[in-house]
């Protein structure tokens, strides 16, 4: 399981594409909105760390936990 996770991460890293510097510096509001939509709708985001840890234990995954100003789908 752990090896599988690592190989997926490594593969996704290799397929990363061009570095950020080669992309446009400014993302329009429209593009930003689409990305926020994908991020918040294609991934489930827990607001309880206890719940996230419980699910992580069940699924054998790690927890990615963000500290941020505001909320992912609202103003930040």
């Amino acid at each position: 399981m752990k090896n599988f996770l690592l190989s997926v991460l490594l593969a996704s890293s290799i397929l990363a594409g061009p570095p950020a510097e080669s992309r446009p510096r400014i993302l329009t509001g429209e593009v930003s909105q689409e990305r926020v939509f994908d991020l918040t709708n294609k991934i489930h985001w827990y607001s309880s760390l206890n719940q996230a840890e419980s699910v992580a234990r069940q699924q054998g995954k790690l927890v990615f936990w963000i500290h941020m100003l505001g909320s992912l789908d609202g103003a930040t």
Partner: peptide, 23 residues
């Protein structure tokens, strides 16, 4: 937002349980 672009987005979607808090 770097989290919404690959490779980070796919890694998060497939391999992590995600959450956040307002600080």
């Amino acid at each position: 937002m770097s989290l919404s672009t690959d490779p980070a987005f796919s890694a998060l979607k497939n391999n992590f349980v995600c959450g956040y808090r307002d600080i």
